[in-house]
């Protein structure tokens, strides 16, 4: 029973980790939080669903959806976010991404109604026996997919010229620009990857939660908790944070009285606790306050 809970926790945690990864990529690129990240992922899930409904195979649908959301994220960054990041204003940034979150949610409701939709699981149904625990194929597939994405991004950042440029632009934007790196472009690439990873996360989780316009809001908060826990500027931290949050959430839901209600408070407790005790998270760098 406990092992079963742990396995479920790791699978949902991997999804939180994937969305947290999107949040971290955006934070690294623009030093801001995108409150619309969850709804962008939801839009990705709906695009996948729509393509499947039109007869496209699910895997192709996911890839198209990731590409579409990457493009949309870049557009949102250029039009809505960059002008405000340049002015260093936190409040308008929060207002604008919040506005985007509501607007996208409404758009989804208008385009696809508020009825629940069924997304086929990407990895088929049924279970696999892992060390005596029956784990659903979907859970295993989710964990492996997220792991593959994480490793792919790790290789991109650490071992490719593009990754080097992106890290340079984050480490010292001015010197990067003076070395011939367009920091605007690396910023856009960060948002594009975030949009794609988000769309993947949305499509992966849709079969578990049933696709409806309210699906992503709680996931977003868990993802924020995961990103905060891991450290807002650390991609590996986002994944580890995601899994920790997923497991804690699952255990709290099962073993605490009023568990299903308390587990929604878990995210708040984690966010507040981490920000107060260790604001840089587990893996993040301590930020110097600029005056």
């Amino acid at each position: 029973m406990l092992l079963q809970q742990l396995a479920d926790g790791v699978a949902t945690g991997a999804i939180y980790g994937a969305l947290a990864l999107a949040i971290v990529l955006v934070y690294r690129a623009s030093r801001t939080l995108n409150f619309a990240q969850g709804e962008l992922a939801l839009l990705g899930a709906y695009v996948s669903w729509q393509l499947v409904a039109w007869g496209v195979p699910i895997w192709a649908a996911v890839i198209v959806s990731m590409a579409a959301l990457a493009v949309l994220s870049v557009a949102a960054e250029k039009v809505l976010v960059r002008p405000l990041v340049k002015r260093h204003q936190a409040l308008p940034l929060i207002i604008v991404t919040l506005g985007l979150m509501i607007a996208i949610n409404a758009l989804i409701g208008w385009a696809w109604t508020y009825q629940t939709k069924e997304v086929p699981p990407l990895f088929g149904s049924g279970t696999i026996d892992l060390l005596g625990v029956a784990v659903s194929r979907q859970d295993v597939g989710i964990v492996l997919t997220v792991l593959a994405v994480a490793i792919g991004l790790g290789i991109l950042f650490e071992y490719t010229p593009l990754g080097l440029r992106m890290r340079a632009a984050i480490s010292n934007p001015e010197s990067a620009e003076l070395s011939g790196i367009s920091t605007g472009r690396t910023m856009s690439i960060g948002w594009a990857i975030a949009g794609g990873v988000g769309a993947l996360a949305g499509t992966l989780i849709a079969p578990e939660l049933f696709l409806h316009p309210g699906m992503m809001a709680p996931v977003l908060i868990y993802a924020f908790a995961a990103a905060t826990l891991g450290g807002l500027d650390s991609p590996p931290g986002a994944l580890v944070g995601g899994i920790v949050v997923g497991v804690v959430e699952n255990l709290a839901g099962t073993y605490l009285p009023h568990g299903s209600d308390f587990k929604q408070v878990v995210a708040l407790v984690i966010i507040v606790g981490v920000l107060l005790l260790r604001p840089q998270g587990i893996f993040g760098r301590r930020e110097v306050v600029r005056v």
Binding site: L164, A168, S171, N172, S175, A176, S179, G180, I181
Partner: peptide
């Protein structure tokens, strides 16, 4: 640039490679 012209959390070799980005 004045003062901090390096990328602190990149390695020395990576710093040089960034210089050769173009």
């Amino acid at each position: 640039p004045q003062g901090r012209g390096t990328f602190g959390d990149l390695t020395v070799r990576e710093n040089l490679l960034v210089g050769g980005a173009t």
